[in-house]
Amino acid sequence: MTDLPPKLRPAPADPAATRRYHHGDLRAALLAAAEDELADRGMEGFSLRQVAKRAGVSHAAPAHHFGDVQGLLTALAAEGFRQFLAAQAAREAVAGPEPDAQLVAAGLGYVDFAMTRPALFRLLWQSERPDFRDADLGQAAGAAHQHLVDQVMAAGGGSTADEAAVWAMAHGLADLMAAGRLDALRTLPDAAREAMIAGILRRALPQSAAG
Results as ranks from 00 to 15, higher is better:
residue 17 A to L: 06
residue 20 R to T: 14
residue 20 R to G: 11
residue 22 H to N: 08
residue 23 H to R: 14
residue 23 H to F: 15
residue 24 G to V: 11
residue 24 G to H: 08
residue 24 G to K: 06
residue 26 L to C: 13
residue 26 L to K: 13
residue 28 A to W: 06
residue 28 A to I: 05
residue 28 A to Y: 02
residue 29 A to I: 10
residue 29 A to N: 11
residue 29 A to Q: 10
residue 30 L to V: 07
residue 30 L to K: 00
residue 30 L to A: 06
residue 31 L to W: 01
residue 31 L to H: 01
residue 32 A to G: 12
residue 34 A to R: 09
residue 36 D to N: 14
residue 38 L to A: 07
residue 38 L to W: 03
residue 39 A to C: 06
residue 40 D to P: 03
residue 42 G to I: 08
residue 42 G to K: 06
residue 43 M to N: 11
residue 44 E to G: 12
residue 44 E to T: 14
residue 46 F to H: 09
residue 46 F to G: 08
residue 46 F to V: 08
residue 46 F to A: 07
residue 49 R to H: 11
residue 49 R to C: 09
residue 50 Q to A: 13
residue 51 V to M: 05
residue 51 V to A: 03
residue 54 R to E: 01
residue 60 A to T: 15
residue 62 P to H: 02
residue 65 H to T: 03
residue 65 H to S: 04
residue 66 F to I: 05
residue 67 G to I: 09
residue 67 G to C: 08
residue 68 D to V: 06
residue 68 D to R: 11
residue 68 D to E: 10
residue 70 Q to F: 02
residue 70 Q to D: 10
residue 71 G to P: 03
residue 72 L to P: 04
residue 72 L to F: 04
residue 73 L to Q: 00
residue 75 A to I: 05
residue 76 L to H: 02
residue 77 A to C: 04
residue 77 A to V: 03
residue 79 E to M: 14
residue 82 R to G: 07
residue 86 A to W: 00
residue 87 A to P: 02
residue 89 A to T: 09
residue 89 A to V: 04
residue 89 A to Y: 00
residue 90 A to P: 04
residue 91 R to Y: 02
residue 92 E to S: 10
residue 92 E to C: 12
residue 93 A to T: 02
residue 93 A to Y: 00
residue 94 V to W: 00
residue 94 V to A: 10
residue 94 V to N: 06
residue 95 A to H: 04
residue 95 A to L: 02
residue 95 A to V: 05
residue 95 A to N: 05
residue 96 G to R: 07
residue 96 G to K: 07
residue 97 P to H: 15
residue 100 D to Q: 10
residue 100 D to E: 12
residue 100 D to T: 11
